[in-house]
Simulated assay, not measured.
Amino acid sequence: MAAHRGEQQHDGHLPLAQAPVRAYRRRRPARRPAATFVLRDISQLSYAETAEQLNIPEGTVKARVHTARQVVRELLDTTRHT
């Protein structure tokens, strides 16, 4: 599979991940956990791959994914109780 101009091929994940990466870069800092969550849990990139794509430390990825997962759990709990 050929990569598009300006994109690297990365185990077949990068083309799928390009939209969330672009969205992440346009987001305010408060919205970045959600974008990190999309790359890690939805696009199924590893923590290292996500960190590389976003140009942030792997520990930051883990913290942001943790935060986003907490928000999702709270939303699911709220939905179940209504």
Results as ranks from 00 to 15, higher is better:
residue 75 L to K: 08
residue 71 V to K: 12
residue 76 L to D: 11
residue 29 P to E: 08
residue 39 L to T: 04
residue 70 Q to E: 11
residue 12 G to S: 06
residue 70 Q to V: 08
residue 34 A to I: 10
residue 81 H to C: 09
residue 56 I to V: 15
residue 8 Q to W: 06
residue 70 Q to T: 08
residue 55 N to M: 13
residue 72 V to Y: 02
residue 26 R to V: 09
residue 76 L to M: 10
residue 68 A to F: 04
residue 29 P to M: 06
residue 16 L to F: 10
residue 11 D to R: 11
residue 78 T to F: 11
residue 13 H to K: 15
residue 28 R to W: 03
residue 26 R to T: 14
residue 45 L to Q: 00
residue 27 R to H: 11
residue 57 P to F: 00
residue 69 R to T: 09
residue 21 V to Y: 02
residue 36 T to N: 03
residue 19 A to D: 13
residue 59 G to S: 11
residue 34 A to F: 12
residue 40 R to P: 02
residue 42 I to D: 07
residue 29 P to S: 07
residue 22 R to H: 12
residue 46 S to G: 03
residue 21 V to A: 08
residue 33 P to E: 06
residue 81 H to R: 15
residue 16 L to Y: 09
residue 61 V to P: 04
residue 61 V to T: 02
residue 29 P to H: 05
residue 64 R to G: 04
residue 45 L to M: 11
residue 64 R to W: 11
residue 26 R to I: 04
residue 54 L to G: 02
residue 50 T to R: 02
residue 34 A to K: 07
residue 69 R to P: 00
residue 82 T to Q: 15
residue 13 H to W: 13
residue 45 L to H: 03
residue 1 M to W: 06
residue 16 L to C: 04
residue 58 E to T: 07
residue 48 A to V: 08
residue 7 E to Q: 15
residue 29 P to A: 06
residue 78 T to N: 10
